[in-house]
């Protein structure tokens, strides 16, 4: 319940934050704190320095620019959930947000914080993979942009370097005739995903699949794109049977997690069932 002692730094600009991060070893970035503070209370994390970036106002926004939606890393889950811009232009995110934690958690937790924490059962990674997002990170030496699928490296591990801060998520605005859906089976105690499947699919007027992206969380040590599913659908005329067949590939080639809440076998099964259901719902929305 009680974190170990630390020094607390509150930069008001990103540059100050980056400079603090490069100066102090054993420092952690604090955004909403809803992944980090619980870990600190259990003393699973005991950083010497906390750099609170929540006072940096230019990390908190949702806006449209050049065919993309840009979301500041410090934007809270609730801000995303209630964004009319996202609801119109990228509804997969507004559909996913209410599945995260609970009302109180969504009021504080941030998109950037969740992605940087990379919990294998978090919801955002599935959606971020499905919308084909890019992730912008900065250090005092410069910035770089990563594809979502390159960002997640392993369990609780991302491509972020110790001196980098995740600053922005960039999402291409989906074309016409795109449907999306998020399906989640909750671990009943924690509310995290036993399996979460996010789908974004674009069909042409002949119902041929132009583009499809399937992001899956909860199943494997890291969230991933279900390439096997996507490949079965791309360029094909979509029908229910094909969706079901494609969904069978959802757990192919992954090393599924297993714990007291669900075995690897059941998680894989859920991934297949809910991939099918997510695909069906996404297609029905076109």
């Amino acid at each position: 319940m009680i974190p170990a002692a630390f020094e607390y730094l509150v930069p008001t600009t990103l540059d100050e934050a980056l400079s603090a991060l490069s100066t102090h070893t054993d420092a952690k970035i604090l955004a909403g704190g809803h992944s980090l503070i619980p870990a600190m209370k259990l003393r699973l994390a005991s950083p010497k320095y906390l750099i609170d970036i929540s006072r940096i106002s230019d990390l908190n926004y949702v806006r449209e620019s050049g065919g993309q939606i840009l979301i500041g890393a410090g934007t809270t889950h609730y801000q995303i959930e209630s964004s009319t811009l996202l609801k119109e232009k990228c509804p997969l995110l507004t559909e996913t947000a209410p599945y995260i934690g609970d009302v109180q958690v969504r009021n504080r937790g941030t998109l950037g914080g969740s992605l940087a924490h990379a919990d294998p059962a978090a919801d955002w990674p599935a959606a971020i993979l499905a919308v084909g997002a890019e992730i912008n990170v900065r250090s005092s030496r410069g910035e770089r942009t990563l594809k979502a699928e390159d960002f997640f490296v392993d369990m609780m591990t991302t491509a972020l370097q110790p001196n980098e801060i995740l600053t922005e998520i960039r999402i291409p605005i989906p074309p016409q005739r795109t449907g999306s859906a998020y399906e989640k089976v909750k671990q009943p105690a924690s509310g995290f995903a036993l399996v979460g499947v996010a789908v974004q699919i674009t069909l042409d007027t002949n119902r041929t699949c132009q583009r499809v992206q399937v992001g899956i969380t909860g199943l494997a040590p890291k969230p991933f794109r279900a390439i096997g599913v996507e490949n079965m659908l791309k360029g094909k005329v979509i029908n229910d049977q094909l969706l079901a067949q494609a969904a069978e590939k959802a757990a192919d080639g992954v090393d599924p997690l297993s714990d007291i809440h669900a075995s690897a076998e059941y998680r894989s099964h859920l991934a297949r069932v809910h991939t099918k259901r997510a695909l069906q719902r996404a297609v029905s929305r076109i």
């Binding site: 319940m1 209370k41 934690g101 609970d102 109180q104 504080r108």
Partner: peptide
Amino acid sequence: IGCETSICGACTVLLNGAAVKSCTILAVQ
């Protein structure tokens, strides 16, 4: 305070109008 893992919500208060779990926020925040 009813738990240590931000689940139970017994510590819920409004911070700037939003319900938050005060066990998962530092006073300095």
